[in-house]
């Protein structure tokens, strides 16, 4: 848990845009993981497994509170929603955060898992329960978005 808690909390902060809610979901995720520990067949897959539980916890929470649509469509300034520890320090980091926040949560999760954490598309598909084709299209969409922001940033400097 000590190895993964930081990245899981960041993952959930990026999805929820709410540090307190993200910590609550992280706690729920680790409690679920503890309760279902016997289901973990391969210890090597623990990291992917905890990401899967965390993502499901986020989806359950979003569904339960009917905030998923709001989360995906509302652009909230980062300074109002992100912790100091997770807030980009400036420059390109801000642009990356803006680009990512412009993506819907499921697309953002896919991009973080596939491009940020290096999971395969198949692994991401299993984690998020999204079809492989959807995962691939989310990755392409995320790349396009990041590329656009990156180009704008490069032109600006």
């Amino acid at each position: 848990m000590r190895d993964t808690q930081g990245e899981i909390r960041t993952f959930l902060v990026r999805l929820t845009k709410d540090a307190a809610l993200a910590d609550d979901l992280a706690q729920i995720s680790y409690m679920k993981a503890y309760q279902k520990l016997e289901n973990l067949r391969e210890p090597k897959a623990a990291r992917a497994w905890i990401y899967k539980i965390a993502y499901r916890s986020f989806v359950d929470e979003a569904r339960k509170t009917k905030r998923r649509r709001e989360m995906s469509q509302t652009m909230v300034p980062d300074s109002m929603t992100l912790d100091r520890e997770t807030q980009p320090s400036g420059g390109i980091a801000v642009d990356v955060a803006r680009a990512m926040n412009a993506l819907p949560p499921d697309c953002r999760a896919v991009v973080m898992l596939a491009l940020g954490q290096g999971f395969t598309h198949q692994e991401v598909s299993e984690m998020t329960a999204l079809p492989l084709g959807t995962v691939k299209s989310h990755v392409v969409r995320g790349k396009q978005k990041l590329q656009a922001f990156l180009s704008a940033y490069e032109q600006a400097i």
Partner: peptide, 8 residues
């Protein structure tokens, strides 16, 4: 994305 997904 390294900074964006950096562990808390």
């Amino acid at each position: 994305l390294a900074g964006y997904v950096a562990p808390a």
